[in-house]
Design a protein around this nucleic acid. Structure first.
Length: 320
DNA sequence: ACACTATGAGTAA
DNA sequence: TACTCCTAGTGTC
């Protein structure tokens, strides 16, 4: 997924573009017809992320819970009214605005590039105008459509309508998220839940009931940054080490939310920093670098499977 | 046409 | 630990 930073960005996008407005909701794919009917015509009142989950409240006390899983993505498109046209409405045509694009799974980035190319074509010499609303592409589980904004959801692992009580129950299960709980309160919650566990820290960081929002990349990178062996039992860590991990998550998450990229090589400056942002080859310390030399000690990066996910670490740098 | 991969997670055994 | 679900892209025959 889309680790936690992406979901916070998506929620912010909904707050900008759709909160306070009535939706027309459909399920072009047909697998969320009932839910779409329940929500259609309602006003989106709130939208926020906790960890990797997004909760959206609609009038009438209906809550939409979305979890993107590995594959899920939101695809946004926007209509720009023609110059002098003050009130574009559904059914009219207009060019797609900058700001259209996909947010979620990494493959979505490719889709964004394709779209960007189409926009250039559309806005270029031909003067082609896109149709509004756009025809759904692929398996669109749910489409949220306002007068000007269209949000298509594909491939989520969860997309369901909940009562307030059900939504609260899901929220309660989740561990602290720095962007929700803040650093101090979040640390108290994390410590209470995690400090005495015998689980390997490499597994615990991925447990969303312990700490929310961390996925496979942040997990690997944070353990490298802290110099901690992923197989250390959580209870055997010094409290300061656990604290270091929490504080690091509090530092990295806002950068991820800000940039939309998982930035973990925070030591880089200037062009090296830009290279790391631009190319996946330079982006990480250990994630996806099995067999390649550690950037610090040149030890080949290790790879193992831990609970069905790939775990990357440097056996030279991560010992404690 | 088919195999494989991916930033996730629940359930059964 | 293994299997399940969700989608789309890339690579191989």
């Amino acid at each position: 997924m889309p680790e936690g930073h992406s979901v916070h960005r998506i929620a912010a996008r909904f707050r900008e573009a759709m909160v306070g407005r009535a939706m027309h909701t459909t399920s072009p794919q047909g697998r969320f017809v009932r839910g779409a009917e329940l929500l259609s015509g309602r006003v989106m009142e709130e939208c926020y992320a906790v960890g990797k989950q997004m909760f959206t409240q609609f009038d009438g006390d209906l809550h939409l819970r979305v979890h993107l899983g590995i594959y899920g993505a939101w695809d946004f498109s926007m209509q720009v009214p023609d110059v002098g046209d003050a009130g574009a409405v559904e059914g009219q045509t207009g060019e797609y605005a900058a700001g259209a694009g996909s947010m979620g799974a990494p493959r979505a980035a490719r889709l964004t590039r394709v779209r960007a190319g189409e926009e250039e074509t559309a806005g270029g010499a031909s003067g082609t105008v896109a149709v509004w609303p756009p025809a759904p592409v692929g398996a669109v589980r749910v489409r949220l459509l306002t007068e000007r904004v269209c949000a298509d959801l594909r491939g989520p692992t969860v997309c369901e309508v909940l009562t307030p009580g059900e939504a609260a129950a899901h929220l309660e299960r989740l561990g602290p998220d720095p962007a929700v709980d803040g650093r101090r309160r979040g640390w108290a919650r994390f410590h209470d839940r995690a400090a005495h566990r015998r689980t390997p820290i490499g597994s615990l960081l991925m447990d969303q009931t312990m700490i929310a929002g961390i996925g496979n990349i942040y997990r690997a990178e944070m353990l490298f940054r802290a110099g901690i062996d992923p197989y250390m039992r959580t209870a055997d860590l010094a409290e300061s080490q656990l604290r270091t991990l929490w504080d690091d998550w509090c530092r990295l998450l806002p950068i991820g939310i800000e940039t939309g990229v998982i930035v973990t090589r925070t030591d880089l400056r200037g062009s090296a920093k830009q290279d790391a942002l631009d190319s996946i080859e330079n982006r990480h310390h250990v994630y996806g670098r099995a067999g390649q030399a550690c950037r610090v000690c040149a030890t080949p990066i290790s790879l193992a499977e831990l609970q069905g996910r790939k775990l990357y670490w440097c056996a030279g740098c991560q010992r404690r």
